[in-house]
Design a protein around this nucleic acid. Sequence first.
DNA 1: CTGAAAGCGCTTACAG
DNA 2: CTGAAAGCGCTTACAG
Lengths: 343, 343
Amino acid sequence: MSKKQIRLADLAEKLGISTATVSRALKDYPDISAETKRRVNELAKELNYRPNTLAAGLRKSETRIIGVIIPEIANHFFAKVIKGIMEVAYREGYNVMLCQSDEDYEKEVVDARALLSSRVDGLIVSIGNHTHDFSHFSEFLHAGIPLVFFDKTTPEIEDCSQVIIDDYAGAFQAVDHLIGQGCRRIAHIGGSFEAFTFQNRLNGYKDALKKNGIAFDPQLVFPSEKLTIQVAREHAEHMARIQPPIDGLFAATDLMAIGAMNGLKSQGLKIPQDVKIIGFSNWEMAEAVDPPLSSVNQPGYEMGKITTEILIREIKAEKEEREIVYEKIVLQTELISRESTRK
Amino acid sequence: MSKKQIRLADLAEKLGISTATVSRALKDYPDISAETKRRVNELAKELNYRPNTLAAGLRKSETRIIGVIIPEIANHFFAKVIKGIMEVAYREGYNVMLCQSDEDYEKEVVDARALLSSRVDGLIVSIGNHTHDFSHFSEFLHAGIPLVFFDKTTPEIEDCSQVIIDDYAGAFQAVDHLIGQGCRRIAHIGGSFEAFTFQNRLNGYKDALKKNGIAFDPQLVFPSEKLTIQVAREHAEHMARIQPPIDGLFAATDLMAIGAMNGLKSQGLKIPQDVKIIGFSNWEMAEAVDPPLSSVNQPGYEMGKITTEILIREIKAEKEEREIVYEKIVLQTELISRESTRK
DNA sequence: CTGAAAGCGCTTACAG
DNA sequence: CTGAAAGCGCTTACAG
């Protein structure tokens, strides 16, 4: 069993024709005779010829690889986004090179450089919470490689498209809903406020309070660096002791909402009778917990698809040297009301 | 702003030296003068030189890319495995090209070919449930590209390593535990029995019954093509009507266990008083549902790490033309007992 | 309808 | 300590 892979040259030699002709025959160029095409394709199939896309890529300066940098893969929202990305990429004939920045700025930089060195045709990024310098991303734009941000983005880079959700409106909706259900003392578990998404959710929370004439109380806000069930549970145990007692909770992720729900229940509080809870993301588990969790739907899968569609459109435009029109897509959230906020 | 990326030749020209010297200086070859190295590195940094790894890969016949094919990315177990894969890959300086087969045989074949064409240095695969022909994988071995299977594997390909868990033992443990807690009529929700993993879990279930002198009753087994909460809930609603009534349930995934828990609760059954439930995987949510779900821990993250470590070891061995010793690693599962199976 | 030749951007054996 | 040259496996403009 040979350890070498078949090359165009091997096919050419066996058929007694040039590599140029073999190359064209495989691509079904119109000016190659039907008979030649038949012979070439037959042999290619017989020998399991797999074209070396690196070589082709080097020659054509296109790799048909899309680079993706996300902070954390084992997160249901990002997993859904990646699923959307991969489906569109597959459909359009692109491969996906995936990097996880781990919310680590240095790693994000290293990943970005590796993808640049891999000469990806385009890049999709959700920026890490602690990233405040973006030159590792602007390098792509200088090199003419399209870049689309989703979810976590920055106003500092202008020459690129972005796909986000309306975090502010979603949070506003959520808190307005709680108030509509009778809550007056509403706590908020947020993520790192360094990140725009969590900053926006906090602002939506504040403005919904204000609109309803409820004073903002900073001691009801719990920022969390790590968004784990455990952290949320600890917050909740603290929350249960606040006086006057809280009667509502808006958590910036469903996972935190569920952790807090457990924590509050373990302190003897009843959901929704004593405290009504709403999360953010509406992932699969929200309806499976007890009581089912109200949430704000965040369409991750659609986000991944749209982001990739825009990116591929820009890759094509760049190749054909057409002007790229940058888009800013704001996906709407949707309030999903379940037991956990019932009156 | 130029749209072309800097090449080795650009650096060489500006410095008035050859590309060979620049190449060696950047790699810190010992026989290049310190002064030349300094000048090269300085200019490379100033111009943001990013070596084209395609070109280097073509020349060296190594891409430092690991290909990964998994059935479904938005699945917590696989997401954890990928996380493990990416961490080791990053540490060892490899990029990861990820493909999702979607439990679709045709797509799996297309993905495998694309990765072969990308000349990945190694491949990691979890085989789809409906795959019964494996020639798209053996092509890698013929080409001298190491391949490691994890979780879903096949005895039909011998020249490769695999990392699996002991599904049989895990299932046996789970059902034995239920019996120990007093259950005698134990239902089983399984996945597609085409897949070895689910077949093995079924066998563990059967043998645990047998060991404890309980007759196997086929009407208590619910195979499921789609492993969703909804499907599990429907099964549960059916289960609730079985006579004599069930008093235990072993579900082949936590998601199914949780769906079934909801279904049974909605039929007025109490968990664990009327029916004790145990799942499989022990993902984050298991301890967050009400009552907390007993489960069999399946170490996905470790699985991803070990798989990748083995693969990289084999890539190195292949490159150095050393003999590769194939390994079969069976990770042990662990029973996690929580409220849902309390006596 | 087909081929010879150049070139994509690197690396490395060979020579000096 | 450095350089000239070949070559990795393709594609494509040019020529016939």
